[in-house]
Design a binder for these strands. Structure first.
Ligand SMILES: [Mn+2]
Ligand SMILES: [Mn+2]
Ligand SMILES: [Zn+2]
Ligand SMILES: [Zn+2]
Lengths: 137, 137
DNA sequence: TGGCGAATTAGACAAAGTCCAGGTATTAAC
DNA sequence: GTTAATACCTGGACTTTGTCTAATTCGCCA
């Protein structure tokens, strides 16, 4: 999917995020690609043609987007956080050889038998990660 | 559970790991506590009374134990890897406020509807992480 | 045009983890 | 006992990911 500049502006505004140039560039990379990207990849993609932003702004912006519920983090690789433009409930298939992450829709997936939480606790998410690698040839 | 020195030695030997002093100390911390610990916590616990080992050896040893299937990694916190002495299939409840990790037995838990993998791929594990936090008071 | 709060930035800093080269332990042979 | 081979350990330099700070710049509006 390709997002127009106006669509991105109203997306940010709906999340109470001022639509600055840098934030729009970062949002464009995340939402037009629809992939799971790490901060350094996002920095490289945004700056691919001309220098548009800095490392500090990329990290600040990703944390802001995450706090405002525009994106979410995917914790599968101890070396870096991946950012996911899809905040709908879904799960992940992780190729440990290539580092590639693909989505598993939550629809056709049922988990039963999860324990009850302590009464003063609330779930912030259930993440299922299926790790796979190439079969030994 | 408390492990005798002899029990630890044969545990390491069954995994083709030479039972050196440092490795036994590290194994003792992991297996006698049965908790999910990060490398720096393990280093501090092993050296609690007298200096027994170094940072490099703790990291080397944890990687060796993991490669030999004696322990496994738990990836829930982007800041550090936790090491789990329980390699049986099971899942994790993660308190995002305190950082505490507790086990969810795999027995009473059923997941259905997982997608098929590409034919040349094999699963190396299915990890379910339930993240929870204190309800807003 | 000037002023003000919000945003951006370079670069210093921090923390987790890896790497390397030299030192130490263990064992085996002599 | 000494020597030698090998495995193991270690201090400290290094790398990577991410955060912080102080200074600058931007965007807006009076
Ligand atoms: Mn561009
Ligand atoms: Mn890290
Ligand atoms: Zn996803
Ligand atoms: Zn566990």
């Amino acid at each position: 999917m390709s997002y127009s500049r106006d669509a991105l502006i109203s997306l940010l505004q709906r999340h109470d995020i001022g639509p600055t140039h840098q934030r729009l560039e970062i949002a464009q990379v995340l939402f037009s690609r629809g992939e799971h990207l790490a901060a350094e990849q996002i920095l490289a993609l945004v700056n691919e043609h001309r220098a548009e932003t800095s490392k500090a702004t990329v990290y600040n912006t990703l944390n802001l987007f995450r706090d405002r519920g525009l994106i979410r983090e995917v914790i599968v690789d101890p070396k870096r956080v991946f950012y996911d433009p899809n905040t709908q409930p879904h799960h992940h298939l992780y190729n440990v050889d290539s580092g590639e992450i693909t989505d598993i829709p939550a629809d056709d997936l049922v988990v039963s038998g999860l324990p009850e939480l302590p009464p003063d606790m609330v779930t912030t998410g259930v993440d299922i990660i299926v790790r796979m690698r190439a079969r030994q040839p």
